[in-house]
Write a protein that binds this DNA or RNA. Structure first.
Length: 304
DNA sequence: ACGCCTACCTGCTTGC
DNA sequence: TGCAAGCAGGTAGGCG
């Protein structure tokens, strides 16, 4: 589930613990985890000997910047985790890729459900941040290799915690969309890094119904949502992420944010603001939690 | 441009 | 107790 706060936590941990380390070699236990380059033997050959210069994040991906400018991307998807261990730590049956570091430690990519993907890309072009739904056609073209790291992310929407993500910019983007708020918040080409947990949390905080049409918001509502998105993400980071079953930081420990969530997975429990039981509906095949009193039903004119 | 659907995987919980 | 169905934080790709 890792969303922006969980990925940010992992990236900060790794920056602290493995920046400057050398990757001596790698063992791939599940071939499909390697997205690029293939075959995975080639990936292993190309990563071996590389040094880790810096670790960062873009959208929900961990970016491991190498000494020569190349970038390794790790998309954790549902159950992925990057954990730093001593080499003599117990073997992990769910470790899909293990990087051995020259100092004797291991960087393990663990992933129960095997949805996550690791790529190794030439550097360059990372500043470009495209907009709109180019994401899709870009991704299709990407199969044709040769892609630099910047192009891997060119279809993603703005990073919600940056300075340039202003309420005015958010308002402009929302005004051009007729879809439902919940669906849009989950659309990575619309806004990067928000997933199911933080989308529900932000909508509750902003007192907006998940089925509201994006272009129906007043400017006051847009400001509330803009602030709410940033607040729930920052709170998630401050608490090292929300853990339910699989998510852990690079230290292997769960985060503390799950106990501070207001609506997510609180179906039928009282709303912390008004006491009314939290509702659960399905929007875009994703379970959605909200308070039917604090987040009133969109009127017929605003309904999609 | 956009929405809906399925597929990708495994483990855990729930209900009969 | 056993077993099957349902559920899970994400996204790529196909179809309409």
């Amino acid at each position: 589930m890792p969303e922006l706060p969980e990925v940010e936590t992992v990236a900060r941990d790794l920056q602290r613990w493995v920046a400057g380390a050398t990757i001596q070699g790698a063992t791939v236990h599940w071939d499909r985890t390697i997205r690029h380059p293939q075959p995975s033997e080639r990936f292993v050959a190309e990563i071996s000997g590389a040094t880790i210069r810096r670790v960062g994040r873009r959208a929900k991906a961990v970016l491991i910047h190498l000494g020569d400018g190349r970038v390794m991307t790790v998309a954790l998807r549902m159950t992925g985790a990057l954990i730093v261990t001593a080499a003599d730590a117990d073997p992990d049956p769910y470790a899909r890729v293990v990087f051995s570091l020259a100092d004797g430690r291991e960087l393990r990519y663990r992933d129960v459900r095997k949805f996550g993907r690791i790529g190794l890309w030439p550097g360059g072009g990372l500043r470009s941040v495209g907009a709109g739904r180019g994401a899709r056609s870009r991704r299709v073209a990407e199969g044709s290799k040769g892609y630099r790291i910047g192009e891997v992310f060119s279809g993603h929407g703005p990073e919600p915690l940056t300075r340039s993500f202003t309420a005015a910019r958010f308002a402009e983007r929302l005004s051009r969309r007729s879809g439902r708020l919940k669906t849009l918040l989950l659309d990575q080409s619309f806004i990067a890094g928000v997933g199911n947990i933080y989308a529900d949390e932000a909508l509750w905080r902003a007192r907006l119904h998940p089925l509201r049409r994006a272009d129906s918001l007043t400017s006051g509502e847009v400001r509330r949502l803009h602030r709410a998105v940033r607040q729930v993400l920052r709170q998630g980071i401050a608490n090292r992420g929300s853990s339910f079953s699989d998510y852990v930081g690079a230290d292997g420990e769960p985060g503390d944010n799950a106990e501070r969530l207001m609506v997510y997975q609180r179906t039928d429990q009282p709303c912390y603001r008004c006491g009314r039981p939290i509702s659960r509906i399905v929007v875009g095949q994703r379970s959605t939690h909200f308070c039917p009193r604090c987040q009133p039903e969109p009127g017929p004119s605003a309904a999609p």
